[in-house]
Design a protein around this nucleic acid. Structure first.
Length: 872
RNA sequence: GGGAGCUUAGCUCAGCUGGUUCAGAGCAUCUGCCUUACAAGCAGAGGGUCGACGGUUCGACUCCGUCAGCUCCCA
């Protein structure tokens, strides 16, 4: 079989993915004879296109799923997308805009028609991109959060929570996006330090020439003031307690109140209270029973309650009011001031705190079991430090605002009559019936216009992908739930992870997943988070096209320390190159091994030591893999495989067994080599599925596929053989180094003398050693050989004889350097051993190892001293 | 303002319950090789007083404290 020069990734990716799908490897059905291993994908936005974050996240999931599949588990990876109400609605509005249609000109039904049109056309592109990455999800299970069943499930949960008393309607202070005209959850608000001006305004005391200076960054809201607050102990203002002051320009009197909340040395120490337009003011207002005056319309313009500048947009109003205040001599001074200002994640407008009637979920009770589950490790977090963060959040939970002023999403199942009575039911018919029952009459009911927060549907994800809400207790649900592992970004621990846990306990009485692995955040080479806004995420499909999916997977995983952020060098693409070099290396190893097919001979295996050594090395590596996976150190696992394949297998093992130019290779050695190669491909397959599958098939013609291969369990490795292998490597390296330093040409043969006393140690790998250091002959001697280079490996003294051992100087320098180090080392060990307090306090085994260190160092020093003698 | 995390070779990171034959890996760098799988390679090498200062200890990269710098989450 002729092998191409390089691994043909385009062809292989297409070929194998198609075959995997056709043979149904990704498909999972309940099977009582096997344990399920289930992962639900964090559903990407239906508007999403593959970016680095997805790539990392889904590669990890695929690695876990493929590994589980090869370990005999019933691996089930459920894919899907999230309807992403705000993002999608924005896309649809944009599409309409391009067609010259204004959203306001459409009815809700018309708009939704366009929205579905958009979704059917562009939605789910990302799922195709995940296939390009090689993701082995069960595509038959693809779920969308607005699928009919899913939709009903969301509504059912809303109705249920409402009747249980968890959901209520309340006037609360919320973040308002004046551009999108919608409420935002706390999480959708981005806080950024912003340069502002702090104005000191005169609030004249009623009927007096005296005034209280009040500092504010939002002078346009003074018309909504309902008090001025000072610290009760503030001497400057004690005389004004109980008095009233006049709001500048409009002259409305408001009381002076006191509260310890005020910081005396910030600003003027006097705070204007505007309960309608500031979170803290609202709380203070509630505490002191203040009136609430809302001076804004929902688009951020001033309303008639503002009295002045009615109809002006808030930022314009600020400019105008400052001018008016200046003209009327109300401004004492202004100073620069930087503080955090909230911006809408979607529209980037400054968020307006606003009082609004919204739907809420009471969280406290739901949170209890969810907090306990994580704290007592029923659900494990990796890395575990997120437990602290989680606890802190769960213990300080606030109610969840779940209504959104959007059309794309799950419409709130609440109906109102003309008097404003509320009926919550799953559909209009049920609502009407319930209304009649409650009120004893029929009425025209009007459904709430708002939609539910997207997270109110995604918190049901692990439940409803198996129809756990719409068809509770069904077989699939009972088999797959709870799922095993959730892989997600730490930034959505509260939006999503915490709420799924709550929903899990509320609706299934059980956790939704056993383990949560938090990935790092992907950053660019400048350390900036990769984001759509910055446009610093590379085009993944282009990278996959250029380097291949395996190289991309490798590149992103190798750079991805567990739980830490990942710096991805987009410019150099260095880890991608490393990945494709690695593929090339394996491809060439394949070519080498295949070339032996024509040179087989059934004979004694001269390299049996190599086979025995690699056999043990492989089992040791398998155990290491298991350990790494158990701790979710996935990039460590990949690093160790990389080194196992490149260094141990290619650089050492293959070189040891490689037949010389005109020689044959023993059949048993060849078969072992093929077996090792297969095992290595199996270990690597979860990380790099395509190239490993290709090599697996090229190694031997076969019917089965690597993706479905069951991994054999590892056996305990023989430590003695492993030590022998390390000794051999060290001998080879040291002798080669000595050759280099003595300027012995690579092609030149040497004579190698080994210590007779150690012959039993060397004999098993003597032949390998001879070839690897290019020795013409190996002899065992009991005394130093004159006119040779000495190499000391561990405790063994070896002598090299060459035609011109010329530059003995290098050799001497090295030995002297080693000697110096060892003497220093010995001194420190001796010092320690002569320290009585050390002897008293240290554990016995520590003292033993120190004694051994001393003996070893002494032996080695002696050997070096002898060698130096020999050099003279 | 509250909370969390990070600071180890040029870069990205490992280093568990404290004990110098462990200060390590990969990439990058340097030297020598176009050796019949691979120059996308092979064989070697150099490079860090483990952010700063204190403390605990016989002994600290590893524990505690203070400080500095960076990042994230929340008010």
């Amino acid at each position: 079989m002729e092998l191409s020069k390089n691994f043909p990734h385009h062809e292989a990716e297409q070929k194998w993915y198609q075959r995997w799908v056709e043979k149904g490897y990704f498909r999972s059905r309940p099977d009582k004879n096997r344990d399920p291993f289930t992962i639900v994908i964090p559903p990407p936005n239906v508007t999403g296109v593959l970016h680095m974050g997805h790539c990392l996240n889904n590669t990890i999931q695929d690695i876990l799923i493929r590994r589980a599949r090869m370990q005999g588990k019933n691996a089930c990876w459920v894919p899907g997308t999230d309807h992403a109400s705000i993002a999608t609605e924005a896309k649809v509005v944009q599409m309409l805009g391009e067609r010259g249609i204004a959203k306001s000109s459409l009815s809700r039904e018309e708009f939704l028609k366009y929205a579905w049109e958009w979704k059917d056309k562009y939605g789910g592109i990302i799922l195709h991109q995940l296939k390009k990455l090689g993701c082995s999800a069960d595509w038959d299970r693809t779920t969308f959060t607005m699928d009919p069943d899913y939709y009903r499930a969301v509504i059912k949960v809303f109705v249920d929570l409402y009747h249980k008393g968890y959901i209520y309607r309340g006037r609360r202070m919320i973040h308002w996006d004046v551009k999108a005209k919608t409420a935002l959850s706390d999480e959708e608000v981005i806080r950024k330090p912003t340069q502002q001006k702090l104005y000191y305004l005169k609030y004249y005391v009623e009927g007096s020439e005296e005034f209280i200076p009040v500092a504010t960054v939002r002078p346009e809201t003074i018309m909504g003031d309902t008090a001025v607050c000072v610290h009760p102990d503030d001497e400057r203002y004690k005389k004004f307690h109980g008095k009233r002051v006049l709001i500048p320009l409009i002259q409305r009197p408001v009381p002076v109140i006191t509260d310890e909340y005020v910081t005396m040395d910030f600003g003027s120490g006097a705070l204007k209270i505007t309960p309608a337009h500031d979170m803290n003011d609202y709380l203070l207002g509630e505490k002191h029973g203040l009136e609430i005056i809302d001076i804004f319309n929902d688009d951020g313009t001033l309303n008639e309650k503002a009295v002045i500048f009615v109809g002006e947009e808030r930022m314009q109003a600020r400019k105008k009011i400052i001018k008016a205040l200046e003209e009327n001599n109300y401004i004492i001074k202004s100073e620069d001031y930087t503080s955090e200002v909230g911006y809408s994640e979607r529209t980037h407008e400054v968020v307006e705190p606003r009082l609004s009637v919204q739907w809420w979920v009471r969280m406290k009770k739901l949170a209890e079991p969810a907090l306990n589950a994580v704290m007592n490790d029923e659900i494990r977090f990796y890395p575990s430090r997120y437990k602290n963060l989680y606890r802190h959040w769960m213990e300080n939970l606030r109610d969840w605002c779940i209504s959104r002023q959007l059309w794309w999403g799950h419409r709130i199942p609440a109906w109102y009559d003309d008097a404003g009575n509320i009926i919550v039911a799953e559909d209009e018919t049920k609502a009407a019936a319930l209304y009649e029952k409650q009120h004893g009459k029929k009425a025209t009911l009007r459904q709430d216009e708002d939609c539910l927060d997207t997270w109110f549907s995604s918190w049901l994800w692990p439940l409803e992908v198996f129809k756990g809400i719409s068809r509770p207790g069904n077989d699939e649900f009972r088999y797959y739930y709870p799922t095993q592992t959730l892989v997600t970004a730490p930034e959505i621990i509260f939006f999503w992870v915490a709420r799924m846990i709550m929903a899990g306990y509320e609706y299934a009485g059980n956790k939704p997943f056993g383990e949560v692995y938090f990935t790092g955040i992907v950053r660019d080479e400048q350390g900036r988070k990769m984001s759509k806004q910055l446009g610093n995420s590379p085009d993944l499909l282009a990278l996959i096209d250029r380097y291949g999916a395996d190289a991309v997977r490798f590149g992103i995983m190798i750079a991805s320390p567990a739980g830490n952020d990942l710096l991805f060098d987009v410019k150099e693409e260095s880890t991608l190159k490393q990945g494709s070099f690695f593929i090339n290396k394996m491809w060439n190893a394949l070519k080498l091994v295949k070339s032996w097919e024509q040179r087989l001979e059934e004979k004694d295996d001269a390299s049996s030591f190599a086979v025995a050594w690699f056999h043990n090395r492989l089992h040791e590596a398998k155990a290491v893999q298991e350990q790494f996976f158990a701790e979710y150190k996935i990039s460590e696992a990949l690093k160790s495989l990389y080194s196992l394949i490149w260094d141990e297998f290619c650089s050492w093992y293959l070189e040891w067994v490689k037949p010389a130019a005109n020689e044959t290779i023993s059949g048993s050695c060849y078969r072992s080599t093929i077996y090792f190669f297969e095992e290595l491909m199996a270990l690597l397959h979860p990380f790099m599925p395509f190239v490993t599958e290709e090599i697996y098939h090229k190694l031997k013609s076969r019917e089965d596929d690597l993706i479905g291969k069951q991994m054999s369990a590892h056996e305990p490795a023989d430590a003695a053989v492993l030590r022998q292998g390390e000794l051999l490597k060290e001998l080879i390296t040291s002798i080669r180094d000595a050759r280099n330093k003595a300027k012995i040409k690579p092609g030149e043969y040497i004579k190698l003398y080994l210590p007779e006393a150690d012959q039993p140690v060397f004999v098993s790998f003597e032949k390998i050693l001879k070839r690897q250091v290019n020795a013409e002959v190996i002899q065992y001697v009991s005394h130093p050989v004159p006119n040779t280079l000495t190499v000391i490996v561990q405790k063994h003294k070896c002598y090299i004889e060459a035609q011109h051992t010329g530059a003995g100087e290098e050799q001497r320098k090295k030995l002297e350097k080693d000697l110096e180090y060892l003497r220093g080392f010995l001194a420190s060990v001796e010092k320690k051993l002569s320290n009585e307090r050390f002897l008293q306090n240290a554990r016995p085994e520590i003292i033993e190892t120190e004694k051994k260190k001393k003996a070893d160092a002494e032996a080695k020093i002696k050997a070096i001293e002898e060698s130096l003698q020999n050099l003279k």
